[in-house]
Design a protein around this nucleic acid. Structure first.
Lengths: 372, 372
DNA sequence: CACTTGCATGGATACGTTTTCAAGCATCTC
DNA sequence: GAGATGCTTGAAAACGTATCCATGCAAGTG
């Protein structure tokens, strides 16, 4: 296969085909660079000038260099996106949502995978700072101490899917708290001038974990289950809190177990749970990786789903339907979460950003049955 | 939760805490900016000067601005990464590999999702050009016509997972072709000065599709299957070619069917295949999304796997093991593909990039049985 | 000593843009 | 007609860095 030239069939090949700059356009159009800049960025200009500049620009195939603009405005466009693990389908969905919004705005997005490690997350924040990218949507791994520097530096950050680990997630009224703009996330010191004097809120786009978990627990209780376990991972704080609340009364602490982010750890946690508490009859997992681990561990231990153990997994992923039995899940709109977060981070400044709580849905398939 | 300041507890809050520039460092250290620049980028300087500059830089918490550097060097660091769909676990793995390599090199990566649409891909290339990002690793959706402009503009591109759609993928010796550096991908015209006179090769990092498919087909034939179908999607050209070659003789054209990138289309194709050719006994799918569709369609049509139909899926994804029966797969090292591609794109220039062919592996689980 | 060589150093320039500012000009108002 | 008003325009000044070049100084060479 041969890549053809683009139609530049001059006898002499123009070797140094430097990209045209605004200066070239200005000279060719017989105007000043300022005028070109104005025309191209929608400023005022006389109709004839505008037309001439536009024509020349098109003819020279001029594309403004983001480098010059960025330096001038001391900020790089676009936004950062931090997710824990792109191998987790849910974060793939979230990322697709962000990308969709960013594309429609013509903005680039620089990606970082944190591996649920606050240290890596802090490093990535540093990289954004160096690049002068001042907007980021993050599924936070670390707590306030990793995000305070970013906010102090004037970054616009929007949290997605979860809040920093040390944010209060067990407030009585999750919905209220969130609709107030995650007002607990406040920066009272070292604010940029604009927001001086009032607390800075970091907006967040979250799924209504509390409602999702509550619905799932009620569903399981309705099936007769009493010994219900929760299998969680990093960032599932709000979910486990909702679980405790939904179960009510004192919850059996052996029945809530946590894994780290890795699949191995998830499997170990699931397997350990099943072995240490063979009397449990149902499990709710805080994410799809945990759900995967639970299915695997159950199979390994010859526990039948749903006969021996009922299973509800957080996250609706395409493969949930492939399991047998197909998994009953708490669906959250991953793509929407990403899209809305990107909208928020882009609109920040013009509109006062308000946090968003998106609905979840219990999708009943075949992994839950009556207590046996 | 309150974000604390970072220890700047002066009575007077320094509102305008502009980030320190190289000029600030130079003044504070009593040297010229040129010296600071040299020290920081490893140039020569006297030991005492070096130490002083370093100390001052650390004290001022100076971080060089990528903006200034980029403009000066007329290129943005980092690399672009284009994948068709992050919802596809395989591309999630690939992206994780790229990110891992990029992180260890301290380089940012800007992400694009093409949706297997050449048009969107071309737009994204345009965005990179505008950002002066001159390196990209791509899972190409379009053909030469979408990549020629990028290469003409001097970008370093590395293909991953597949080649542009109009690249010859049915050469007799895939291995040879690839190890020669995908020499079919040549640009004979409009080269940057450095490579003038010799063809420009676009390196690629691919899995050994041919071997993978061949192994799978042989395995199925060994089980007695004769009517084997292939279910492919965008970018599976090399795989279907390998399939034809492995099946040998004239292949029944009704048995190779293609879907577009969407899950709906995949399901429709799978369902259509099963219904139009109830006599087939085995299916090989070109990717995991197609595999998912095949399982779903088979279940919907009451075809039992592997009793009624045997199934081999390309891509080993975590959920392959969750299916029942667990899916027999052709595993390709997604993460490695990404990592190697990132290495290539970063090393380009110093080393002459050579393409890479990574091994595949047939992982036999439970979705294939003897012909019935 | 005269001359070259080598190295550390800093001033100046350029990278491509946006934005400020003042000037030029035409039109409107009293 | 004089002044005010509004619009278009271009020169110039940043933005933060890397690098070219000239300078100064010390050491080496004849």
């Amino acid at each position: 296969m041969v890549f053809q030239g683009d139609g530049n069939h001059d006898g002499i090949v123009s070797m140094e085909s430097r990209r045209a700059t605004i200066k070239d356009v200005a000279e060719a159009a017989g105007v000043g660079v300022a005028t070109v800049s104005r025309v191209l960025s929608g400023g005022s200009a006389s109709p004839e000038t505008r037309e001439r500049v536009l024509a020349v620009a098109a003819h020279l195939d001029y594309r403004p260099s983001a480098l010059g603009r960025n330096l001038r405005q001391r900020r790089t466009g676009g936004m950062g996106l931090f997710v824990p693990d792109l191998t987790d389908t849910f974060y793939g969905q979230l990322a697709e949502g962000v990308l969709a919004c960013a594309r429609s705005a013509g903005e680039p997005v620089v990606l970082g995978s944190t591996g649920d490690d606050p240290e890596q997350e802090a490093e990535l924040v540093g990289m954004l700072l160096e690049q002068s990218v001042d907007r980021v949507i993050a599924v936070p791994s670390g707590g306030a101490e990793t995000w305070a520097p970013a906010i102090k530096a004037g970054m616009t950050v929007v949290f997605a899917d979860r809040l920093p680990s040390d944010a209060p997630f067990d407030t009585p009224s999750d919905r209220d708290s969130v609709s107030r703009g995650v007002s607990d996330l406040m920066l009272l010191d070292g604010l940029p001038p604009a927001s001086r004097g009032r607390p800075l809120e970091v907006p967040a786009v979250l799924a209504d974990d509390r409602a999702g978990i509550r619905t799932a627990v009620r569903y399981l209780r309705g099936l007769g289950h009493r010994r219900i376990a929760f299998l969680g991972g990093p960032g599932h704080g709000r979910r486990v809190a909702a679980f405790r609340e939904a179960v009510g009364a004192p919850v059996d602490e052996d029945l809530v177990v946590f894994a780290t982010g890795s699949r191995d750890s998830a499997y170990a946690a699931a397997s350990g749970l099943f072995q240490s508490r063979p009397d449990l009859t149902a499990v709710v997992t805080g994410g799809n990786v945990l759900g995967e681990a639970a299915v695997l561990a159950a199979r390994e231990l010859d526990l039948r789903v749903p006969r021996d153990v009922s299973l509800v997994m957080y996250d609706d992923v395409p493969w949930a339907e492939l399991c047998s039995p197909p998994l009953t899940v708490i669906a959250q709109p991953g793509r929407d979460i990403g899209y809305r977060a990107a909208e928020l981070v882009l609109r920040a400044g013009s509109r006062r950003p308000r946090s968003v709580l998106l609905p979840t849905e219990l999708i009943v398939r075949g992994s839950c049955g009556p207590r046996h």
